[in-house]
Write a protein that binds this DNA or RNA. Structure first.
Lengths: 171, 171
DNA sequence: TTGGAATGTCAACAAGGCTGACGTATCTTG
DNA sequence: CAAGATACGTCAGCCTTGTTGACATTCCAA
């Protein structure tokens, strides 16, 4: 079970090299280390404001879908409403997010960023995009395409659906 | 600033499409959603054992580097020794990890998995690899190469160094 | 009019980060 | 050999962010 020759090829010329346990393990570690880098820059900004990643996530998706409802946000973020509510409350108190009763359905709360909220969102996403941009530049366009394909294939179906819905409906 | 034509090409035929803010934002969201999938399967197993991701990370890197020291693990994981120690203590108490005084340097503790620890490590990494393998199959070999390139470019230099060191020295 | 959906909120708890302070072996170096 | 540095463990306390459970309010829709 230990060392099947790594250069084994199948009939159709499709390499199996990248499916060895060792290759998969390297992919796993790459995800682990890369995710640390992915969050490192925004985290610095958030810490100095005594916010956390949860605040960032809320701000990100409110920015992406201005006027979104609480329950929609709950579905995207995959946390309990109590957890989200704690974060939203501080953001609203601090004047970064505005919560407005729905017009069609007055039970719903529609969330939007205030001017201050947008300013912070810009700071955070600029920081995060800078690293992403550098990585994209280093790796090149075709690597980026592959990167996106693998990530998408790794998502749970329901989240993949949401992810693609987010892409399609352009703001 | 809003809608530069997305198909703009530069002199060398290098597409800038993948560097637009919108493309970068999609990459950011892809990372977010994919990481959820990435951790979902091991999390299920861990929860039923009343362990968390912190335990998984420790187990993973001890498995990868049997006999590694506490301080090496601290550097890889990027947490405080108090935090790591809390996790290690439970793993040792539960008989999954063995901690032994160093021979050359008796201050050091060398960590290895017990048979039970290896069994759990197998369960966890099988679950995580299954999803990774499926994603790799779906996306194909060249996508996988790109995936790895972008992730590596996204890491902090110090972590990239550790990541590559981990690859080179084959167990 | 009534059931259920959407939302908010209180309380209590746990995991897993963090800092700070200390203690104890054990190396290493002057 | 003495003194300082290093590796590790641990106690205490704090924070964020997740959880469950219970309950109130508002309002849509059948």
């Amino acid at each position: 079970m230990k060392s099947e020759h790594p250069m084994t090829e199948t009939r159709s010329g499709e390499s199996l090299l990248f499916l060895t346990d060792e290759q998969l393990r390297q992919g796993i570690e790459a995800m682990f280390f890369a995710y640390r880098g992915f969050t490192a820059d925004p985290d610095l900004i958030l810490t100095e404001l005594t916010y956390g990643r949860a605040h960032h996530r809320a701000i990100h998706f409110i920015a992406r879908r201005p006027g979104t409802t609480v329950s929609n946000l709950l579905n995207i973020l995959g946390v309990t409403k109590q957890s989200l509510n704690r974060v939203l409350r501080t953001l609203i108190e601090d004047g970064l997010v505005k919560s407005e009763k729905g017009v069609a359905d007055k039970r719903e709360r529609h969330l939007t960023l205030t001017a201050d909220g947008e300013a912070l969102e810009q700071r955070l996403s600029d920081a995060q995009r800078a690293r992403m941009r550098a990585a994209y530049r280093t790796a090149g366009p075709s690597a980026v395409a592959g990167f996106r394909q693998v990530l998408e294939a790794m998502m749970d179906p329901e989240l993949r659906r949401r992810y693609n819905a987010m892409k399609e409906t352009d703001t």
